[in-house]
Every structure is written in C-alpha cells, then in structure tokens.
Design a protein around this nucleic acid. Structure first.
Lengths: 333, 333
DNA sequence: GCCAACTAAGACACCGTTGTCATAAGCTGG
DNA sequence: CCAGCTTATGACAACGGTGTCTTAGTTGGC
C-alpha cells in the first residue's frame, strides 16, 4: 500500500540505512549512491513516515505554537510567520490554542508534548507569562522560544519589540502636533506589553513637561467594546482630551465608532491613535495612525531561534515603526 | 525518561495489551481491571505516544485542515470550529495553508498525507474546488469533507449554506426599503460562492420586476481595496445607485471608506450591505447590515461528518441570518 | 452434564524509521 | 608494507504502541 523506505532501497539497490542517510543528508555517502537514491525517491514519490522517524529517532520534525489570543489578525500573523520558517526547515507546525486561565493548562501542554514528541515550542503572548506553562516546559526540559514575553527575560530565548519606546514615540508624535490633553487606554492586564505601553506614554508626557493625569487614563481589554467604553468615559469628562491613544487598533476602532456616534469628527474634533497596525487599521475610517508591530517577523525570527543548533539564550529586538494616517492631526485653534 | 505503556502496565500489574485496551475503550476488560489501569495512568500522568499509535495501528488521531484564504477572520473561525470538534474527539488538528495556484499543490497535499498518516481531511473554500487537490485526495482514498464547496457536490460529504438565498434575502431587504438602483460587488472569481451570491442578487431583482443592469455590477476580490475601487466606479456613474451590496464585509468596509472619503453619509446618502458578519462588520462605522454566515458552525459540523463511523456521503445545510445594522436605511425622498 | 459461545487477558509479531555497531575498502605515513 | 585512520555501507535491535492469535475461565442451552 504505502511506499516505504524499503521500496526505495530496493529500487535504488542499496540498504534501507543508506536511504535513511541520504534522507537525513548525512556524511559518508558517495555522490553516485546519493543520486541513485534520490532518483528512486523521486520515482516513487516517497515521503518518509513522520511517525516512524519520531519513534525511532531523536527528533519529531514537529514544533508546537501555543497561543491564547483572541485577535484573529494577531494570531494570523503569528501563525504565518512560524509556518513560513517551519516550511524552510521541513518541519511541521502544530497550532495549539489554550486558555491560560484554565486549571488544566499545564496538563494540556504536558499532554501535547508527550503525545507529539515536539522538538520545540513557540509561546506567544500572553502564554509567555503563564507560570504554569513555563514550569511545565522547564520540567520537561524542552526547548522553547517566547514572542514578546513580559517577565523572566533571562529564562529563555525571545524576540520582542520595544513597546515602551513605541508608545513613547506615538505620544511624542501627538505632543508635537500640539496636543496637551492626551487620553490613554491601557491594554488587557494579562499582557505584559500593556504595562510597557502605559509606561512609554507616561515617559513621553514627563519629558515634555506635561503632568500625568489619572483621569485621562482608562483600563481596556484589547477589544472593540472596551475601546468604546473608554471613549465614552473620556469624552464625557469636564475637560475632554483632544487626542486619545489606545493600546491597540481594536480599541482605537471602538473609539472611532463612539466618536462617530456622538457626532465628533475625526481628526478635526479628536485625534485617535492605535497600536499594532493590523489590517483593521486601514479598514476603518479614517485610517488609523498606529505603530507597526512586526508580528509576522517576530514569529519568523522566534522560530529561527528555535532551530538554532547551539541552544544559547538569545534575545532579538525588532524595530517598530510609527505609521501616520488620517486619524490624527494638529490640535485645533 | 519518557513514561510508556510498559510503566503503566507494571504499576497496574497487567500486560501492556490490557493497558492498550483500556486506553482505546475496548470491550472485554473487567471493571476492576479498568480501574486499576486508570489509576496507574493518572498516577504516572501518562499520555500515549501518537507516533507509536500511528505506526502500529490503523489510525493516527490526526486530521488536517487545508485552506487558502486570506481573510484572517474567516480562517480564524474555521480553525476554531474544527479545533473544537477535534478536541471533543481527542484528535489533533494540523493546520495546513496552501496556495491553490501552486504547481506543486497535489504534491504538497500528498506529502502531508504520507508524512502524517492523517485519518481525514477538511477542505475549506476555495481549496474545495481545486481539481488537483481533489484528485490527489481521491487517489489516496482518504476521507475528506468540504466546507462550502462550489462544484461536484455528489463527490464528498459537505456542509454549506445557501449563498444564493442569502444574497436574495439581502437584496430583497434593500428593495423593501425602497431601493431600486442597487449596486453589487462580486466576490473573488476563485470562490464558487461568488457566483451563487451574484445569482441570488439577480433573482431577487427579477422577482421584484427590477431590470438587471450590468453597469451596476462590478468585479471584486473579497478585499478592502477592490471594494473601494468598485465603490468609486459605481458612485461616479451618471445614475448612481442608492445602495451597494458587497459580497463580503471587507469589500463593504472599502465602500464605507470611499463614501466617507467623498463626503457621502452612510446610510443617509447611500446604503451599504456586506456579507459574512465577520467581527469587522461591527468594527466599522456605521456597523454593517450583513448576512451572518455560520462559519464556525460549518467547520464544526464538517469535522463531525469526518468522524462519522459510517462514511455515507452527507450534505448539511446550515442557516444564514440577515443582520440589520446601521449601514442600511430606507431610500431618501 | 457437555459443547458452544462469550468474556477476559496475555504472548508476540509488526508498523517504518533511526541509532549503534560491524565490516571492508581506500588512503596516509613511517 | 602494515598499523591506523577515514570513508562508505550494511545488519540488526530498538522506539512504543496495536493487531492477531492463543489460552483459560465462565455462561448458557438442551
């Protein structure tokens, strides 16, 4: 039925071990033999059984991507990046959504590893900072790389961007446009990046000599609804802000909607800024001024670190970019 | 190192075969024995190796989801549905993005099947209608179910919604609001659903005695940019439409943007309708009147059909729903 | 009271690869 | 010219489960 290494070895006139050597690009195979085997592989259209390789060998040619993120755009970009790098390496990606609040989180991750023998794991935020998940991975002594972790930076290799600096850049941009009362919507408390962005906002105000006013800062949960709610709270203040900076694009979209709803024109009456530069940023009106987070590249780089031969702990910082679109403008008057 | 079935059998005081029987819920195991084994499994926190089960047995406990769709919302919903059903079944999902235009499509799918021994495959549109993909799956005699296929309905089990009826419903809704000049933006030509929706639009006009006017119908590609381009074409016509119905939400968002751009107020000056009811529909202003496509449920149901014991070809139609929001209104005057 | 059928459990080969070890030929240097 | 390396290849066990066959005890029907 199935084409196996035995069939290949018979056609090529060598032992199965030699076929295995060619498949794994090992040394000590004559060029002529290699060619014979390659020809047989091509003729039979042979693909080795991952199950058998996993069982017999010490690698499974599979890695897992673990995430708990409800932004379709974000996980789409993450998956795309991991997948692209895996493809280059000839490794399969297992996408594993989890619930970091679940009591069985560690068990689920442990089960995944035992069942699939994955060679490594990519953790995306906020799983990057779930202690049970980290402990389980450490316990199993498996290699893993984190994308945008917020804690324990020394623990593992990771890739990230400078969230604080990015938020600082955006805030400074608004200040440079003459804004003095700048509202801020914090991200989901689960995500460490939320703190960083909040900090960057504050640092920029500080440097400009603008006082930090707690009433201008509202909590959010990275979703549309909480953006809308924050907008309502901020825009019914006695002294309204002239600009609102949200910690992600979904919340910024919520702010835009609320503004439309109450008849404010953006950016004439209110400047709105987002963060992430997901597709959404260009699908709303006006298109959002935002920070381009290199999500796909982060995922790609993280996966690359996982495949590094030498398991040295490495940290890679990728550049963000301030993208100015139509949702922000100079303050009026 | 790894906990194996042997460890479990030793602790439980039975043979490995008996452990295997308990794991697979087979008959002919005394309740008392079953309990002993279950206790040992729990004590050791044992998860059986998928690789070994795959190699020795006739099932791999894995299925593949193959897609080529660039809408993050859509694939997010599809993945969520397939994943949820797999989880119930204790089966792993392999997400496999492909390029249906690629010359190596069949080879990639064949390789996937050979390598992973997947028990079945879920195809999502437009891979559902890629002849090379279908031929390859047939050739390997593997079970597969299609989500919203456009062709060869008799070939496999499938789940789908009535795209034509849904488009008819939306068009009728607009007609009932007094619109007579209704623009239409067709979907991506790769997707069979595009034709169906186009047909439904035409059927509704017909029934209402409104002539089909080709100049009111523009091609699109299911993305924001093509929606914007179509809007420009339609709204610079000598006799403008009073409503535009786009074949998906992304394109409808493009129409909204163009309308904002040229100072048209929606829905006062123009009604806009979308299709799919992705999250996006509620993130734009005004929120879109659209058709709720039960994407996640389609995926969930499709996966259920794959697990059906009896491989009878089944077709399941799921209900759509007309969602009326702020982007449509009675025609003025 | 005996044979057939059912229940319960184990022995053992096998799935398709890789790891380890053995072997043989070719080369190098003293 | 031979010891000792490097190169090239194969034999065989092992990975961790499941499928098949066998055995033995228990029921049940006549």
């Amino acid at each position: 039925m199935r084409v196996t290494i035995k069939d290949v070895s018979r056609i090529a006139g060598v032992s199965i071990k030699t076929v295995s050597r060619v498949l794994n690009k090992e040394k000590y195979v004559r060029e002529e033999t290699r060619a014979k085997v390659a020809a047989a592989v091509a003729e039979l259209n042979f693909s080795p059984s991952l199950a058998a390789r996993t069982l017999a060998g010490s690698r499974s040619f599979q890695i897992a991507l673990i995430y708990d993120n409800h932004s379709p755009y974000y996980i789409h970009a993450i998956q795309a990046g991991v997948w692209a790098r895996c493809r280059e390496q000839g490794v399969r990606m297992l996408a594993q959504p989890v619930d970091i609040a679940s009591a069985t989180l560690a068990q689920e991750i442990g089960g995944l590893i035992d069942e699939t023998h994955v060679d490594g794991v990519i953790l995306s935020s906020p799983v990057t900072d779930a202690p049970e998940a980290l402990a389980e991975l450490e316990r199993r002594n498996i290699r893993f790389v984190r994308i945008s972790p917020g804690t324990n930076h020394a623990m593992t290799s990771s890739v990230f961007m400078d969230d604080a600096q990015a938020a600082d850049d955006m805030t400074t941009h608004l200040i440079n446009q003459g804004h003095r009362r700048i509202g801020f919507v914090i991200g989901h408390p689960n995500h460490m990046a939320s703190d960083e962005r909040h900090f960057g906002y504050r640092r920029a105000l500080d440097r400009a000599g603008i006082g930090y006013e707690p009433s201008l800062v509202r909590p959010g949960e990275f979703d549309f609804a909480s953006g809308m709610a924050a907008a309502e709270a901020l825009l019914t203040l006695p002294k309204k802000p002239t600009a609102i900076f949200a910690s992600n694009d979904d919340m910024a979209a919520g702010i835009l909607s609320y503004a439309h709803h109450v008849g404010l024109e953006v950016p004439r009456d209110l400047s709105v800024a987002g963060f992430d530069d997901t597709d959404l940023a260009q699908l709303v009106w006006p298109p959002l001024t935002t920070i381009r987070q290199p999500t796909r590249d982060l995922a790609f780089a993280a996966t690359g670190l996982l495949f590094e031969a030498d398991p040295v702990i490495t940290h890679q910082r990728l550049q963000h970019e301030l993208i100015v679109r139509g949702s922000t403008a100079r303050v009026r008057g």
